[in-house]
């Protein structure tokens, strides 16, 4: 199959697949960040049960294989009378996994600050809120930029789980198997999808590095 044949037949689907992958990645990443923030608050708060819940959440979702989780959402939850459509299942899977890693990134961001600065803030008469707003959060966010950039790439790659359930239109990985089960597509459909992933990952990396350069804290 030549590239022109491939594009004339599947060009539209590639555009849709790329947009679909981007959209799933964006939504997943946004919600994962939000959830990661909440989980991190749980994990640092002085209320023990919430800490335990936060830690448990992170251990569960950073260690569960994505497919295993997706299968549970897609095939097991309906038995428990919880039904989501396929795309939502994929997005929820990515959010759950990514938020666990996101929380780990936030935690290590907090860890880079050091007890000394916290004590300095306290000595200046800052209450907990001010200390958080002026000292902890700005620094934790800045040092989380690079890890979060890498997490964004990981989210992009994890959306490939969408190929394991019938999505229509399929996303970039699913499309490769879709094309190959219909025609002998050869290497080309694979290469196009791969380049779209790698290109997107590259752009995410460039953006992340640019942000990091701007906000990085010299220590």
């Amino acid at each position: 199959m030549s590239i022109s044949e491939l594009l004339s037949e599947y060009g539209d689907m590639y555009v849709q697949a790329l947009l679909g992958t981007w959209w799933m990645s964006l939504v997943s990443f946004a919600f994962a960040m939000l959830l990661a923030l909440i989980i991190t608050v749980f994990r640092v708060c002085p209320i023990k049960p919430l800490r335990v819940v936060g830690d448990l959440y992170v251990q569960i979702f950073r260690n569960i294989p994505g497919v295993s989780l997706l299968i549970i959402l897609v095939y097991a939850l309906p038995y428990l009378k919880i039904v989501m459509d396929y795309r939502l299942c994929v997005i929820v899977t990515v959010i759950l996994v990514a938020s666990a890693f996101g929380s780990e990134n936030f935690m290590s961001g907090i860890n880079t600050i050091g007890v000394g600065q916290i004590e300095a803030a306290r000595s200046l008469g800052m209450g907990f809120g001010k200390m958080l707003r002026l000292v902890v959060i700005p620094q934790a966010l800045r040092s989380a930029v690079l890890p979060m950039t890498n997490l964004a790439v990981a989210v992009l790659l994890t959306t490939a789980l969408g190929s394991q359930v019938p999505l229509s239109p399929p996303e970039l990985t699913g499309l490769v198997s879709y094309i190959n089960t219909r025609t002998v597509g050869g290497i080309l459909p694979f290469v196009i999808s791969a380049l779209m992933y790698a290109g997107t990952a590259f752009v995410i990396g460039v953006i992340g590095n640019a942000i990091d350069k701007k906000v990085r804290i010299v220590r």
């Binding site: 790659l157 490939a160 990985t173 490769v176 597509g185 590259f202």
Partner: peptide, 14 residues
């Protein structure tokens, strides 16, 4: 920058 699943399909299908 490429999902392992895509690589798996490459070896499985292509």
């Amino acid at each position: 920058g490429v999902p392992s699943l895509l690589l798996i399909y490459f070896f499985f299908l292509v």
